[in-house]
Amino acid sequence: MVWKWIAGIALACSMLPAGVGFAGDIEGSSDHPVLGRFPTATIRAYEVREFDAAILPAGRIDDGEAPGELLEVEGKVTRIGYRIAGKHSALEVMRNYEHALSQAGFETLFACGNHEDCGIDMMAFISNSGRIRPPGFGDAFFGETAERALLASRSDADGNVHIFLHVIEDTANKRTVLYQQVVEAAVLETDQVKVLQADELERSLKRQGHVAVPGVYFDTGKAEVEPESEAALAEMAKLLEAYPELRVYVVGHTDNVGSLDSNVALSQARAAAVAGALSGSYGIDGARLIAKGVASLVPVTSNADETGRSRNRRVELVAQ
Rank of each mutant, 00 (worst) to 15 (best):
H162P: 00
G159K: 12
N173Q: 15
R154C: 01
F164N: 02
L165E: 00
H162G: 01
S153L: 03
A152F: 02
E147S: 04
Q192N: 13
L178I: 01
E189W: 10
E184R: 10
I163A: 09
E184S: 06
S155A: 10
T176V: 02
A186V: 06
L165R: 03
G159Q: 13
L165P: 00
V161W: 11
L150Q: 03
N173P: 01
V167P: 00
A185V: 05
Y179V: 00
L196P: 13
Q192L: 13
V193F: 14
A152M: 04
N173C: 11
T171R: 15
V177R: 15
Y179I: 01
R175N: 05
A149H: 03
S155H: 07
I163C: 07
K194Y: 15
V182W: 08
Q181K: 08
V182N: 11
L196F: 09
L151R: 06
H166N: 05
Q180L: 09
E189P: 01
T176P: 04
N160S: 05
V193I: 08
L150V: 00
L150Y: 02
E189G: 06
D191A: 02
L150M: 07
A152Q: 02
K194W: 15
D158K: 15
A172Y: 13
H162N: 03
D158G: 13
S155I: 04
T190N: 07
E189S: 12
N173V: 07
Q192V: 10
R175Q: 06
E169Q: 09
E169R: 13
H162C: 01
A172C: 13
L150E: 02
S153R: 08
V182A: 12
D158F: 14
L178W: 14
D158P: 14
T176H: 11
A186M: 11
V193A: 14
A172E: 10
F164C: 02
N173K: 15
S155R: 06
L188K: 12
T190G: 05
A186W: 14
L151Q: 06
L178K: 14
I168E: 10
V183Y: 07
D170A: 03
S155V: 03
A185N: 12
A186L: 08
T171L: 08
V187A: 15
Q181M: 11
N173T: 11
Q192K: 14
L151W: 04
A186G: 06
L178T: 01
N173D: 09
H162A: 05
T190A: 05
D156F: 00
N173A: 14
I163L: 10
R148H: 04
L196M: 08
L196R: 13
T171S: 10
K194L: 12
R148F: 03
F164W: 04
A172L: 14
Q180P: 01
D191K: 09
V182Q: 11
